[in-house]
Design a protein around this nucleic acid. Structure first.
Length: 451
RNA sequence: GGCGGCGUAGCUCAGUUGGUUAGAGCGUGGGCUUCAUAAGCCCGAGGUCCGCGGUUCGAGUCCGCGCGCCGCUACCA
């Protein structure tokens, strides 16, 4: 039985019916819950129910819906989620907030069956040859994740592989599916959608056997990103308030990479953060340009000016030299680990740390001094700087693809420079170099504010 | 009301399963350097890890209570 608005000619969802709470007498009660005392209500217990749409009194009508038996799937879901607590056993480091919101809720409240259909005149019609399905649509969170699969199939088809190739992506344990979402969508991706897939399984495997839908390898939820304009208070990004920075507008005047850099560096991975325009300019100029870009630039100009645009001989490396080369390998490993764990801020931090170590190495070995006293040492040092730049090119690629391409062009690297293992492939003596070009430019506050 | 999150240096944040003198970047004070995009490097100052209590040989970390801020509790995707 469900409340029906005769005038609007539609069934009413719980939040569309207001009335008086039978417990506390508050007038701010909805069908499912009272805003006054907070108690959850039975859908028919509300006193003097009124439709929010037409202010008329709704009547009870019988309707039929299809339910997802989350209650029956709960034990398997819990077993699956439990494995996600331990990175070692599941191979993925799940963020605490995702487990807390999903597993925590199940343990305290348990799951109830949930209707996956709605009495709607729009949306995706229930695809059943059943008179009761007439005029009913699928609940959005039932068909939205299925869309993940169907657009994979559509893509496979347009690629000429045939729609059935979707199984390569969705039904093969070797293919890890990772959902990147906002924190408000956690339960749908960590509970509802996995439950739907579990319901299709024949096996008792919690992850899914080959040929069965694979549950997510990881569900990575970010918090919200606020926005802060200079001289104003931090506020929520809102289309209606017009305080959003549109990608189309931004990309008309600026390169995408500085924005990528900032959005990664300031991402709300554990708690809400703000896109602060001042901070954006400052981090671009101080970190990306001064630390990273300048290291590449000072290395390239030096190599071009004093070594005829070729990689100088490696020579007999000193401890200081090998230590820097070793740092390149360590940075590759650490950045890779952080990326695997979806710790993108930390991963980017590792890349920046390598760039900074390059600057430290440059300052400590002083090739601009050895140039006058010991040309072999100078070449050895610039060789190490170039190896560092080589590693940086690959490591920065996942974050700043255009910048990486420009680095690769300067170092005359092949197409495969993005392959992670190639990061520490050393450039050989005599390897030709391109002209030194400015990688990233400073942002001028006045120009940015004008836009 | 229920569920969940956050509170660590002046600012923005890291702190994995409790384990030495709590870290990074920026900012700030002092110094060095010139290859480089007026870039870079070194050293220093700066913290009652929101408060109180508890568990423990040991708590930023675990438990309880309190204070403050925030999100979810949608037929939006």
């Amino acid at each position: 039985m469900q409340l029906y608005d005769v005038e609007a000619e539609q069934f009413l969802p719980d939040r569309f019916v207001s009335g008086i709470c039978p417990h506390c007498g508050s007038h701010r009660a909805f069908c499912d819950q009272c805003e006054g005392c907070g108690r959850t209500l039975d859908s028919t217990s509300l006193i003097d129910p009124v439709s929010v749409l037409t202010k008329t009194k709704p009547e009870l009508r019988e309707t039929i819906h299809w339910y997802l038996r989350l209650d029956q799937l709960q034990p398997r879901l819990v077993r699956w989620l439990e494995t996600k607590k331990d990175a070692a056993s599941c191979g993925a480091h799940w963020r605490a907030v995702v487990l807390n919101q999903s597993l925590g809720r199940i343990k305290k409240e348990g799951l109830r069956e949930r209707s996956m259909t709605r009495d709607l005149t729009w949306g995706v019609p229930v695809p059943l040859d059943d008179p009761d399905a007439e005029g009913k649509s699928l609940y959005v969170w039932f068909d939205a994740p299925i869309g993940y699969v169907s657009f994979t199939a559509a893509l496979c088809e347009s690629n000429g592989d045939g729609a059935e190739a979707y199984a390569t992506w969705w039904k093969d344990p070797d293919c890890k599916v990772v959902h990147f979402i906002g924190e408000d969508n956690i339960v749908f991706h960590a509970i509802t959608w996995p439950a739907m897939m579990l319901a299709t399984h024949d096996s008792e495997s919690i992850q899914g056997e080959k040929g069965e839908y694979q549950l997510p390898h990881n569900v990575v939820a970010n918090s919200y990103l606020n926005i802060k304009f200079p001289g104003k208070e931090e506020e929520k990004i809102s289309k209606s308030r017009g305080n959003a920075v549109w990608i189309e507008d931004y990309s008309r005047s600026f390169d995408p990479d500085p924005l990528r850099y900032y959005l990664t560096a300031a991402a709300p991975e554990t708690s809400r953060t703000a896109f602060d325009i001042d901070d954006f300019i400052q981090r671009n100029n101080g970190e990306l340009v001064n630390a990273f870009g300048n290291f590449i630039n000072r290395t390239m100009t030096f190599a071009n000016r004093y070594f005829e645009g070729k990689v100088p001989a490696e020579g007999a490396r000193t401890d200081v030299d090998t230590a820097q080369v070793r740092r390149c390998g360590e940075a590759r490993a650490r950045t890779g680990e952080a990326l695997e764990a979806c710790h993108f801020k930390a991963a980017l931090g590792e890349v920046m740390a390598l760039a900074r170590s390059g600057n430290v190495y440059f300052d400590e070995t002083k090739p601009f001094m050895t140039r006058k006293t010991d040309m072999d040492a100078c070449g050895r040092q610039i060789n190490v700087c170039l190896q560092t730049a080589r590693t940086l090119t690959t490591l920065i690629a996942p974050f700043l693809p255009f910048t990486a391409d420009r680095c690769a062009a300067m170092l005359k690297l092949g197409e495969d420079y993005r392959s992670w293992s190639s990061a520490t492939n050393e450039l050989h003596e005599g390897h030709p170099l391109g002209a030194a070009e400015i990688l990233v430019r400073k942002l001028d506050p006045d120009t940015v504010f004008a836009d």
